[in-house]
Design a protein around this nucleic acid. Sequence first.
DNA 1: TTGAAAGCGATACCAA
DNA 2: TTGGTATCGCTTTCAA
Lengths: 340, 340
Amino acid sequence: MSATIKDVAKLAGVSVSTVSLVLNNKPRVSEKTKRKVLRAAEMLNYYPNLMARSLVKKRTNTLGLIIPHTANYVFSFPYFVEIIRGISNTVRSFGYRLMVSTTYAENQKQSSYLQIAREHLIDGFILLDIKLRDERIIELKREQFPFVLVGKDPWAKGISYVDPDDVGGALRAMRHLINLGHERIAFLNGPLDYMVSFDRMKGYRIALAEARLNYDPQLVRHGDFVQESGYQKMREILNSSVDFTAVFAASDLMAMGAMKAIKEKGLRIPEDIAVVGFDDIPGAAFTDPPLTTVRQPIYDIGALAAKILIEILEKKRFKEEHIIMPTELIIRRSCGFKRD
Amino acid sequence: MSATIKDVAKLAGVSVSTVSLVLNNKPRVSEKTKRKVLRAAEMLNYYPNLMARSLVKKRTNTLGLIIPHTANYVFSFPYFVEIIRGISNTVRSFGYRLMVSTTYAENQKQSSYLQIAREHLIDGFILLDIKLRDERIIELKREQFPFVLVGKDPWAKGISYVDPDDVGGALRAMRHLINLGHERIAFLNGPLDYMVSFDRMKGYRIALAEARLNYDPQLVRHGDFVQESGYQKMREILNSSVDFTAVFAASDLMAMGAMKAIKEKGLRIPEDIAVVGFDDIPGAAFTDPPLTTVRQPIYDIGALAAKILIEILEKKRFKEEHIIMPTELIIRRSCGFKRD
DNA sequence: TTGAAAGCGATACCAA
DNA sequence: TTGGTATCGCTTTCAA
């Protein structure tokens, strides 16, 4: 078995308390004994048992990431992986660890994430894929367990979150289309129970209003962010008699689905229909034609969320933080040039 | 603070040992005291502190997932998410938890995954994205820390792994192309330091041999699995003077990149060049034309790897297990029909 | 500056 | 069938 603090103490010829002091970089230890201890630890290949440490400290230095496995769209999101990367790198750079957990526990009465919290395995949660009146937010608040959101909840006071500028992103995409001369722009939005969808709708409508264009409900549909729904909803619009010359999709994946439907109708992109997406996932540059889209700083969003949570846990931050990260329009070829 | 086992004991009017017996479903406890204890636990909203439990049990019931953040391709892989899903669902159904960890620790001397192992935070590892002579395998073996691979390592004896049938998958893809009448088939393979690449190459060559076709090194290139490399390598072949009528890409993402390059040359898919991919990621059905590809049971691979590791840890399994999961050819439209 | 001892919250052995 | 107690490996007073 691996060495314990006692072994180190014995080898160094000091007490365990001293070893603990040294290993935790506390002051008031003489240079000489410090060296002795360090050398002993080194020789024995000693690593503290974090279970034992957490038991007394009542903190595990571990964050939990809750991924809702119901929302299968999250898992199709290439950007989900990018967020994990941002989170996990940050977490580690602060000396923390990351535990992932899904919302449901099949064959178990308890939601597994709550279980993990109650069993003292983690210090705080990062929530992804936030819905309107998200049950996780309600439950964690009730249990008074610390957490931050990637995504926003307008009703949640006292809760910190990091989110892309959805309104601004949608606005930018729409202005681009409008500047290109489009006046009838279909909108493939996300599900109605996501705040994201409201924000992107807001951007859509502001842009229309700015340009004194009418809002036509026949032009908007709600999908679930993945290709298939983009495809279906686009077909619906295509098969109805409404006319339009452009589509704004609330995700790149839906934009891809829409492109497929458009092509199947024998229409050309961008000549007949222009398309804009949202996210700028890696595949966006490889659609045919390459997709013009709104880029969100996904990695940074994850990283920042993790940082904020850690600062809250370490009591370096007391007020809630609501951070809106900037988005950027990436112009490729799916919108073409100005219409006459 | 939350209730401890002592609180429960006090409220139920029994000893802590009895509470422990009840809560762990040990026999030899009278129904009556069992009920008392359960009710007390319920009332106090008691959940055992897993830190304390792990300390005495010397097991954490937590598995670690090592994701190499150097290999940025992993993160672009939509399938990576699917694997996590398989792993995390399985892990939970066995009452385990999942901790994710990356290979490198910037600003830290230690690889963070080793750190986690040494600090007794997890019981075993699942490794993804296995390279030839993968350093993680070497290190974990040296530390005698339990782990399983998603992917194979031909030299690693005593190590269990789960992997798709790469040889067979490649073979199936190639036979399809050959049956369609193709004789000059380009191969966009993965990096040379991956066993996967060797296996897919093996499938490629077996298929050629079967059909008595020549192996032409000018037709093969090694990319890194993501779109950009498929695009670049396809261009290289296109710009060289070699002729070919089909491409087999070792990943769907590379196939997408290749399609872009082919279209840019003004060639049609599948009329001029047929394309087959590997993976069957969600986006494969939405390329233009929809991609014919080899499907791997990604979710199941993750699930099985987790299950095997848990069985090893629980000493229900002693021999190493080498499982090759079947692949399946999904025919869409990127290969067209038989050539004359 | 160092050491002894209590305690974190559980399990498990041994008695009763 | 139940209870007392040592123990897991560490941190943290408190004394020396």
